[in-house]
């Protein structure tokens, strides 16, 4: 459908108003919410991600596209529920216990939402228990934890351990990130993934949700 292509293009241009209007038009033309999502919004976002990777466009362009994505999702959300379309995945994110830094975590949240994930952002200073409880209540597949301080990093391990203690290892995957965190550290505490920046975090979450 031509209109889905137009949605993808409006999203690439970062035009949220146009994306919203076109999504409404598409609904009026009886496109299914799933097709609007897959062939319009996500198709557009995939192009944006590729351009960003090649440095043809910069982060603000990606975030504008993400904003257009939200606008489109707003329109089709009720229909997605009706059609019982599952989101790309559900992710709970937060800065770990004792850590008040959230700039990086916020960026990851924006990028994840832009990529079509449902994101529950628990904010800062999030205790392991809260991560695990929320993941279960929200039926999330992934917990994303951020730390900026070496002193708060151990809270990541406590969350991973708590999941294990509750028999949730493998069912709820974990990804960690933040300036002092490394891939080695992620491995050493038994986290399932490490994201070295927001873009990479989205790729890693996508991989985790696919069960890779």
């Amino acid at each position: 459908m031509e209109i889905l292509k137009q949605i993808a293009e409006a999203l690439q241009q970062g035009d949220d108003e146009k994306t919203r209007a076109l999504a409404n038009d598409a609904v009026a033309q009886h496109a299914t919410a799933k097709r609007i999502l897959d062939d319009g919004l996500i198709a557009g976002m995939n192009v944006v991600s590729e351009q960003f990777k090649k440095q043809d466009i910069f982060l603000p362009d990606v975030l504008l596209a993400a904003r257009a994505m939200y606008a489109g999702l707003d329109v089709i959300k009720p229909l997605l529920l009706q059609e019982k379309v599952q989101p790309q995945g559900r992710v709970v994110i937060g800065s770990v216990q004792g850590d008040q830094h959230d700039i990086g975590k916020n960026l990851v949240g924006i990028m994840l939402k832009g990529a079509g994930f449902e994101v529950t952002d628990l904010g800062n200073d999030v205790a392991p228990e809260r991560f695990v409880e929320t993941a279960q209540s929200e039926n999330a597949q992934v917990i994303g934890m951020s730390a900026l301080l070496t002193t708060t990093m151990p809270a990541m391990k406590r969350t991973v351990d708590l999941l294990a203690a509750q028999g949730l290892t493998g069912k709820v995957k974990t990804i960690v990130g933040g300036a002092p965190v490394t891939a080695e550290y992620a491995r050493s505490i038994g986290a399932d993934a490490y994201g070295y920046d927001a873009t990479n975090a989205v790729e890693q979450v996508r991989r985790l949700v696919k069960g890779e």
Binding site: G14, Q55, F58, L59, P60, L63, L64, R67, I103, N106, L107
Partner: peptide, 22 residues
Amino acid sequence: KHLLIAKHTRRHLKTEHYFPGK
């Protein structure tokens, strides 16, 4: 919470900052 997509940012980003090549 940030200015990444603020109009001010978008207007001045590419002239105010020099982005070197690879």
